[in-house]
Every structure is written in C-alpha cells, then in structure tokens.
Design a protein around this nucleic acid. Structure first.
Lengths: 217, 217
DNA sequence: CAAAAATTCAAACAATCGTTTGATTTAAAC
DNA sequence: GTTTAAATCAAACGATTGTTTGAATTTTTG
C-alpha cells in the first residue's frame, strides 16, 4: 500500500463517514486526497472495491486481536466460562479504541462502517458476512456458555442488542457532546468503553434472568 | 394531506430507508409513488422538506404519546420516582411498535429515520433537535430521578446508550433474521420490545452501580 | 356553464455522478 | 543510458442527479 492509496483510504473514510456509501462522491474523495480523479479506479478498481478495501484494512486486524484475546481468556479460565464482562470487553474495546487516534481517522472509519452496515447495497451483506463470520460464531458460543446456556432465542437477542449498542456508540459518538451540554469529555474513550461494557453486561444478565413468554430451547 | 402527498410520503419512506437521504432519488420516489416527477417539488418544496415532513408526520404523534404516558406514570406514582422499566418502556414501545403494520410502512420509516440520524446533512441536526428537545428533557429528568440521581455524566451516558440500543434495533431489525438463522420470529415485536426493555433497564442499573474513576457530581 | 384555482404533465435545465481513455510523466529494470 | 513498466494526468464518456418551466388538465368556485 503506497502513499497514494493511503491518502485515498483516509479521504474515503471521511467522505463515507459523512455521506454514506451511496452519497459519497469519488470526485470529493480524490479532491480531499489531492490525487487525480482516475486514481481510485486505477488503484482499487471501483468505488465499491475501495469501500471493501477500506473496511478490511481496518477491521481484519481488529478481529484478529479479538480472537487472540478470546483464545487467551478461554485458556486462562480452563473449562469454566469466561466472565461475561471480559467477553463483552473483548468485543467492544478493540473496536471502540479506534475512536482515539491523533488524526481522528478512527472516528471516521467507525462512522463510515456503521453507516455502511445500514445500507442496502447488495455487496455490503457479503462483505460483513465475510468479515464477521468467525468472530460472530466464536463469541456467540462464548456468550452462551458464560450466560449459563439460555435459550437460543435469548442468545440471539442478546448478541443483537450488544451489536446494536456498539453500533450506536460508533455512529452517535458525537451526539455525546450535544447531550452532555459540553460537560462530558468525549475524548475519554476509556471511560466510554468502561461504561458501555457495564451497560451491555448488565443488560445481558437482566435479559437472561427475565422470564420469557415464548421461550423454547 | 391529499392522496398524492400520502403516496409520495409512503414511497419516500421506502427509498430513504434503502438509500439514505443523500442516496435516495427523487425520480425513484415519484416512480414508486406513481406520480409526476415535479410532484415532490410542487407539494413539498424540495427533497429536504419532503424528508422533514415525512419525519414529523410520524414522530410527532409518537412523542405526544410518550409525554402523555409519562405524565400519567408520574401522576400515579405521586412524588416517588417512576420505576425504571416503566420509563424505558414508554420511550421504546411507542416507537418500535411502528415495526408492525399491515403494509410494513413503519419498518421503512424507522430505518429511514435511523439512517437519517446518522447523516451529516446540516438540516438533520436542527430537525431532530426540534423533534426531540422536550422529550429528551423530560425523560432525562425522569431517568435521573428513578436511578437515584447519579452523576450528570452517568445519566448522559445512560441516555446515550439507551438511544444507541434503540437506534440499533431500528436500523438492524432485519439482521435478526440472519443472526437467528430463521429460528427467530422477527414479526414478534412484543417479544423484541420486552427483551429490549429488560436489556436497557438492566444495563442502566448496572452502569449506575459501577464505580466510576472520573465521576463528579 | 364559465371563470378561477389547483394540480398534473412532458420536457428541459445545469450540475454532478462513476468510469474510461489515451497521452504524458515518473520509476524500475537491465 | 536505454527500455519497460507503473503511475499520474486532463479530458471526455453516457447516465443520473434535484429542480424549474410552461402548457395541458382537472377540480373548485361563483
């Protein structure tokens, strides 16, 4: 990955974050990256391939880190389940840590990815399935074990809410500023993640402990 | 609101849901609504005004319902705080109930609105501030009271996570199908809301009970 | 029924979209 | 230093974007 491609990726993160995949403009990306209009098609093939490359470039290392941390946690807990907070932390922290970086590129990436996940582009579903398949499988299993193997439906709802809360935090991080009336330090990602992990873990436990009318295992 | 305007609004919900505000096409909306291309500018003024109208048309009654329910709950609890689950339920249920409707229009509206909230269009921030200001104020106050008046930061984080989880559920409702491998009845909104309310309430309590390093009230 | 207002229509507006082309410049290989 | 290959460039491609226009049509009013 040469400097031109890097410049394009960084500009793409900002544009995709601001306007989504469909709304972002190739011309605006190249203008921001200070490269020629044809550079994107030359280096990446198409706008679609650029988006895919942008996602994989950032998300693959994060998922590797997640799996390694889960391996490590499962090993140190022997045959016992990994504590819930630990699992949630491993899912959330490596990703949301991208909210801090000297050039703010991570913030843009998270917003761009969050926005992409909501789009109806047909290639998106494939992209995220490719990226997340193994991670999803492993963490659903770990969560189920840690929660005492509740019904399949509960685990799915739980994983869903976990992803929703995390996705929302990615997309709406800037809203903290407005809601907090400037009294919240939005740069304190450590604090944000701590609170979010507590929120999600507590939520999962409460959900599992609640009796469900239509529950079958 | 005549039949042409109604047809346009319904078509707009689908298009905005699928492609976001920036990605949606006026031509596609009018084609789907089976009206002339000029109808949108004639009846609404602009694409932007159409989006605003679409949001207010659906969200204003929901917010009125929320405030009425909160009034009622506060009255029946005298000077005591309203139970947390009840408050969360009032925020979540009137909105997510839109996930069910014979013509699925509600699903599209929720996705369209969720997607819009993430966009950087300058008019969006104003629109949502106008819509949500009073509701936010009232429910932040009720939540704070019900949670035992924790620090301002905790309440803000809590309200933020609540909104994030709800937003995610709106945006990603169809993902339940995929994650649940077809074994989850995605049409069972009652069940979804029950689980979500339990998740959010449990999350909020856990968050408030967790000691915070940088906590000041 | 006639006059007036409201609505619908096809056509065109300038602007922008993603992509391609072919020439030109820069870098690498021998 | 000459030859290949890689990269950058301005220009143009056809298609689509949101919006406007002015005539034709429908609906309402007196």
């Amino acid at each position: 990955m040469n400097s031109t491609q890097k410049k394009i990726i960084e500009a793409a993160e900002i544009e995709f974050a601001d306007h989504g995949f469909g709304g972002a403009s190739i011309r605006e990306i190249t203008r921001r990256a200070d490269v020629n209009i044809a550079a994107i098609n030359y280096h990446f093939g198409s706008k679609e391939d650029l988006f895919k490359e942008m996602v994989r470039y950032r998300i693959d290392p994060i998922n590797e880190e997640r799996l390694a941390l889960l391996d490590q946690a499962e090993e140190s807990n022997k045959a016992k389940p990994v504590p819930l907070e630990e699992i949630v932390d491993i899912i959330v922290r490596p990703l949301l840590n991208k909210l801090i970086s000297e050039d703010q590129a991570g913030v843009h990436f998270l917003r761009a990815m969050g926005k992409g996940m909501g789009e109806e582009q047909s290639f998106m579903k494939d992209l995220f399935e490719d990226c997340m398949q193994e991670v999803l499988r492993r963490f659903i299993q770990a969560l189920s074990f840690s929660l005492g193997k509740p019904s399949f439906a509960k685990v799915v709802y739980g994983m869903h809410f976990l992803a929703c809360a995390m996705l929302g935090a990615m997309l709406q991080h800037t809203r903290l500023e407005y809601m907090g009336q400037g009294k919240i330090d939005t740069g304190n990602v450590e604090e944000l993640v701590d609170q979010l992990v507590a929120f999600i873990s507590g939520g999962l436990k409460a959900m599992v402990n609640m009796p469900s009318k239509t529950d079958t295992r």
